Amino acid sequence: MELKVLIAGRYRLNTTIGRGAMGEVWQAYDEMGRRPVAVKLLHAQNSEPTAAARFRLEAQTAGRLSHPHVVGVLDFGEQEGRLFLVMELVEGDSLAHLLTQAGSLPAEEVARIAAQSAAGLAAAHEQGIVHRDIKPGNLLLDADRSVKIGDFGIAQFMNDPGGALTATGQLVGTSLYIAPERALGQAAGPASDVYSLGCVLYQLLTGQPPFRAGSPIAVLHHHLDTAPVPPRELGARLPPAFENYLLGLLAKRPEDRPTARQAAEWFAAGAWRGRPEPLPAAVPHPEPHATPWNPSVGSSWNSAPGSATTYAFPSAVTSTAPSHRTRRRQRTGLRAVVVPRSRAAGTIAAVVVFLAALLVGVALFSPDHSSADTPPTDPPRTTSTTPAPPQP
């Protein structure tokens, strides 16, 4: 086909911006709509038997989506035996190209990419579409660095599991980013896309995918059986909340992962920043059971039998005459069980009165009482119990 001729009478091809096994992508200009576009052309003699069906599927699936974070499909057709797909032109790099230049990205940038990518996936999932090939090369950044999900060529409708367009037992997708359930040959679901996105985010933070090995089969085994190394152990600088959530995206069981919508909202809300980690909680202790003050008892603080008074500060010393430091602590609101000065004076007076009354009672009513019990204070005098005879 002569490339100087318009495709469908309106799309003029300019330069090639990508090539693959199925076809090639051109930067073009829509002379009718007066805007730049991308035109994807299927190879005329494509050897893959499902290539045409997959090409049509991409047009069908992406054409159902209209979302700011999904590459929009504008037109689809055939000219001179070649299928073509007209798409929104994304004037930027893919994340794969960005990784080759930067190696890794800061947490702030990755969180933004996560929020936008998850939002685009959520839109597809809500239309019943599973992408099945989320990887850095299929996440594009436009001139404003906004994420666009592209290449729905192996997407699958959730209500049509048989439409995978692969031979029985054939695994589609990239092994570095494939979910464990798909490694077992199970059907892809929305949670599979979430796992793949988690793998991409992991690589953006650390510079490497979560699992690497010498062969694709060995990588699949890691997805099934190996826990990913926490990114901070590989030098990634990110808040603990971000790391914990990312590891949740990489959960082995699909039901343990958040949905794409939940992930989009979580990252967009800034929850990935987390909060300062709180100090360890103090061990709770039972409060003493105080009883009303009764002077006759002689104590203003009584605990229930067998209970112990608990102090907030183990070094604080409880006394009936608190030190200046203890009284100052009490005024500043720090908990310490001390007896105020006025109450302490009343307590001492009550004790003195009680002891005096006790001594008097013993002296008056004891059956063994005699004057001999009290030591004399004057020199001894001679006394007689017999009356003296009268004087003559």
Rank of each mutant, 00 (worst) to 15 (best):
T206Q: 11
P254E: 05
G274W: 09
H369Y: 08
I113A: 04
P228H: 12
V353L: 10
L205R: 06
L205Y: 02
V130C: 14
G153M: 01
E88W: 01
L224V: 04
G189T: 13
H222Q: 15
A21W: 03
G298W: 09
A350G: 08
T309Q: 00
T326P: 00
T383H: 03
A268S: 14
P239V: 02
H69L: 00
A282M: 02
L105K: 03
W272Q: 07
G18C: 07
P180A: 05
A336H: 13
S307A: 14
R273W: 04
H223S: 03
G346Q: 13
H222L: 14
E243W: 05
A187K: 13
K135T: 01
H97E: 15
P387S: 00
A356S: 09
V283H: 08
H223Q: 12
V86Q: 02
L204R: 09
D373V: 02
A114W: 06
M22D: 06
P280L: 06
Q391V: 06
A191H: 03
S175A: 15
V37R: 01
W266C: 10
T206E: 06
L83A: 03
L250N: 04
G361P: 05
R329S: 02
K4Y: 04
F55R: 07
Q79C: 08
P49F: 11
D160K: 09
L57Y: 07
T61K: 02
L220W: 05
W26L: 04
L65T: 08
Q156F: 07
T332S: 11
E181W: 11
G346T: 04
L140E: 03
E24N: 00
V200P: 00
V317E: 13
L89P: 03
A227R: 14
L98E: 11
G185W: 11
H43R: 14
S371R: 14
M22H: 04
D373A: 10
P49S: 15
H285M: 14
R35P: 07
H97D: 15
G81V: 12
P216I: 02
S104K: 13
N14K: 13
G153V: 08
P286I: 02
R56V: 06
A344Q: 04
A388M: 08
L247S: 11
G63T: 01
N46V: 13
T318L: 11
L13A: 08
L98G: 01
V5L: 08
S300Q: 04
G214V: 01
T386H: 02
A227C: 04
G185K: 02
D373K: 00
V73M: 06
S94A: 04
A124E: 06
H289T: 13
R35I: 01
R257W: 00
L85I: 10
V338E: 05
P68M: 08
E277N: 06
N138K: 00
G198Y: 09
S104I: 10
T174E: 03
L99A: 10
D368C: 06
A155R: 10
V351G: 11
H125W: 10
R35D: 03
A124Q: 09
A123S: 13
G346L: 14
P258S: 00
E287P: 09
R145L: 13
H131R: 12
V172M: 12
L201S: 10
E108L: 12
L171V: 15
P284D: 11
A155E: 02
V86I: 02
G33W: 09
